[in-house]
């Protein structure tokens, strides 16, 4: 059992490091981030999903996709509002970093790609990405950011976020299958 969990955590860390690593070889990867950088990545990841949701609201005609996108707008805003409240309470300023920059860069490319799609092709791409994105974010939270966060309040908020995003992941998986992936 222990070795299975250990393998899962290791796998999540490998996936996270590989996926989040900046193209610059000297850049820090996800496992090296401090609390201020972790907070920035978490907030950025939430904002990216909000941007995907806005795109889906504008482009999709599928009721299930629209409902999911509305849920993403609501839930990610709520989590990010909590993050802002925590940042204000602690009097800190999250630090931009290469991982956040890479996430933004990748999301911009994906938004451009999805913007060119129509109808079911868009729905399939959006739904498939939501499933994969939440899997990826949850792996990063569980395997890297939550264990590495030092501040108890930040760790607690990341755990609360993970709980939310796991529900989203399950929901996204069902949506993805429903649109034909």
């Amino acid at each position: 059992m222990k070795s299975t969990i250990s393998k899962l955590v290791t796998a999540a860390m490998l996936v996270t490091s590989a996926a989040l690593m900046a193209p610059n070889a000297s850049a820090k990867d996800a496992t090296d981030l401090n609390d201020l950088e972790i907070a920035h990545v978490a907030y950025t990841a939430g904002n990216i999903d909000i941007r995907y949701a806005h795109l889906a609201m504008a482009k999709s005609g599928n009721e299930q996709v629209l409902k999911f996108a509305a849920l993403m707008l609501q839930d990610h805003k709520a989590v990010n509002d909590q993050a802002v409240a925590l940042i204000t309470k602690l009097g800190i300023k999250p630090m931009d970093n290469d991982v956040s920059k890479t996430l933004v860069k990748n999301s911009q490319a994906l938004i451009a790609e999805m913007s060119a799609l129509e109808g079911n092709a868009f729905d399939r791409k959006y739904a498939g990405n939501e499933h994969a994105y939440h899997q990826f974010v949850n792996g990063a939270l569980e395997g890297v950011f939550i264990p590495n966060a030092q501040n108890a309040d930040l760790k607690s908020l990341l755990k609360a976020g993970l709980q939310v995003f796991k529900v989203h992941e399950g929901h996204a998986e069902m949506m993805s299958k429903a649109v034909g992936n």
Partner: peptide, 8 residues
């Protein structure tokens, strides 16, 4: 009913 989660 009291919501103790971060989302609505």
């Amino acid at each position: 009913f009291t919501n103790r989660d971060v989302v609505p």
